[in-house]
């Protein structure tokens, strides 16, 4: 407890305490107005409520680290209300409501390994692997002869997520998706 982050250590993903509540840093911008001292402008997302606040810190000021713990877990099933995971070290089971998952739940497939962030023994966030692979459950057939650069269409994956894919991708194909940007990366090679 009690460790602090200096402004020079600010980075996206940092977990900090503001007024006793846990936040994750989602943006930071170094600014040096005039010829004077430097400031870092930040955006912080409340890990529990999801509210985003903006705060500015002068160089030399610091933020208290939030005592968060990241744990490797495996997705088991959805019980109708919560998503159930198993801790891969302790084999404990843990349920998490989708409002803590930032839309990431649509990428969950059975046995997928994810990182669950715990604060005061409560799950407050889920981090997916950067890339997941899944097959396309439904997409409109590609229009033959359409060679427009960069044109895309929506495709629904078996896991339930919808991503934009190039027109040449067909239903039933397996694709690789970047979960951070929710964007198509490429075909999965057989």
């Amino acid at each position: 407890m009690g460790s602090n982050y200096q402004t020079s250590e600010f980075r996206n993903g940092l977990k900090v305490l503001v007024d006793g509540n846990p936040y994750v840093m989602t943006y930071f911008q170094f600014v040096k107005p005039g010829k004077g001292t430097a400031f870092t402008r930040t955006k912080l997302k409340n890990l529990i409520t999801g509210n985003v606040i903006e705060r500015t810190y002068r160089t030399g000021e610091s933020l208290e680290a939030a005592d968060c713990e990241d744990r490797n877990m495996q997705y088991l099933y959805h019980d109708g209300e919560q998503y159930q995971f198993m801790d891969l070290e302790t084999f404990e089971q843990l349920g998490m409501a989708p409002d803590m998952m930032d839309g990431g739940e649509s990428f969950l497939t059975e046995e997928l390994q994810v990182m669950i962030t715990m604060f005061n023994s409560r799950p407050v966030g889920m981090t997916l692997p950067n890339f997941v692979e899944d097959t396309i459950d439904y997409t409109e057939p590609g229009v033959r002869g359409n060679t427009a650069q960069g044109a895309t269409k929506p495709a629904t994956l078996t896991c339930g997520a919808t991503v934009q894919v190039p027109l040449f991708i067909e239903q039933g194909e397996a694709i690789r998706v970047d979960t951070r940007t929710k964007s198509y990366v490429g075909r999965v090679k057989e």
């Binding site: 600014v31 107005p33 005039g34 010829k35 004077g36 001292t37 400031f39 500015t56 002068r58």
Partner: peptide, 29 residues
């Protein structure tokens, strides 16, 4: 000057969206 700079960072700078020439700084800067 530190409080002035904080106000600049929080309340002024981001509102200068049009190309803006800001002139005549305090002599200390």
């Amino acid at each position: 000057p530190i409080e002035a700079a904080r106000t600049w960072v929080n309340d002024v700078e981001l509102k200068l969206t049009a190309p803006t020439i800001v002139r005549d700084y305090p002599a200390s800067e």
